[in-house]
C-alpha cells in the first residue's frame, strides 16, 4: 500500500455528512467506478454476474456492486467500498479484452437518504429537470444540475445517489446542501 494519504473530493480527510430535517447528505468516498464499453452490436457481458441494463437502467448485484447505463454500448460499473483498490483491473479481469476505463476519481458520489419517497421526490424536483419516471427507483439518468453534469441514481424509494464530476465536488455539495436545507428547514 502506498504511504500517500488520499483526500476526499471535498478536500477533507474524512467524508462530509450533513443532516437537515429528515435528509442525510453524505459524501461517499469509497465508491469505486469503472466504465465498460463494447463494440456496437456485441452482446453485453455480465461482469460480476451483473445484468447490464438498457438505457436509463440501474442494475444492482451482489457485494455492493451495481451497473448503470451511460451511453449506447457503455455502462458504469460501481462497487461499494472498493475505491482504494484497482477496480478497473478487477473489472477487466471479469471481461478479458474489454474496454475498461478507470473512473473512480473522475467522479464524486453524494448519497442522499430521506425518511420517505416524498422527501426524495420533492428534493429531486428542485434539482433536476426530469420526469418522475426517469428518477423512479431502479433508474439511473445523466442530466444537468445547476449547470453541472450529474448521474442521478435512484437506488430505493428513500435513497438517491448523485454522482458528479470530482473537480466540481464543492459546487455540487453546495447545491445539494442548500436544497436539503431549504426543504429540511434548517436554513
Amino acid at each position: 500500500m502506498t504511504d500517500l494519504t488520499p483526500i476526499t473530493a471535498l478536500g477533507d480527510s474524512v467524508p462530509r455528512v450533513h443532516t437537515a430535517g429528515g435528509y442525510t447528505l453524505r459524501e461517499n468516498a469509497d465508491l469505486a467506478l469503472a466504465s465498460l464499453a463494447v463494440a456496437r452490436g456485441v452482446a453485453a457481458p455480465a461482469p460480476f454476474g451483473l445484468g447490464l441494463p438498457d438505457a436509463g437502467g440501474l442494475a444492482v448485484g451482489e457485494g455492493g456492486r451495481s451497473a448503470f447505463w451511460t451511453a449506447p454500448d457503455q455502462w458504469m460499473i460501481a462497487a461499494e467500498g472498493m475505491a482504494e483498490t484497482d477496480f478497473a483491473a478487477s473489472l477487466l479481469a471479469e471481461v478479458p479484452g474489454g474496454r475498461v476505463t478507470e473512473q473512480t476519481d473522475g467522479w464524486t458520489a453524494f448519497e442522499i437518504a430521506s425518511e420517505d419517497a416524498a422527501q426524495i421526490e420533492s428534493l429531486l424536483e428542485r434539482l433536476v429537470n426530469l420526469p418522475a419516471a426517469a428518477t423512479a427507483p431502479g433508474r439511473a439518468t445523466r442530466t444537468g444540475l445547476e449547470h453541472m453534469s450529474v448521474f442521478v441514481l435512484r437506488r430505493t424509494d428513500s435513497h438517491v445517489t448523485i454522482i458528479g464530476m470530482r473537480t466540481l465536488a464543492a459546487s455540487l455539495w453546495h447545491a445539494l446542501e442548500t436544497a436539503v436545507d431549504r426543504l429540511g428547514g434548517t436554513q
Binding site: S35, A39, R99, G106, T167
Partner: peptide, 16 residues
C-alpha cells in the same frame, strides 16, 4: 465514421 470500432471516454477529472 461509424464503421470504426472505437470508444471515447473523458477522464479529465480521474487523474491528478
Amino acid at each position: 465514421w461509424p464503421e470504426l470500432d472505437v470508444t471515447l471516454i473523458s477522464t479529465t477529472d480521474a487523474w491528478a
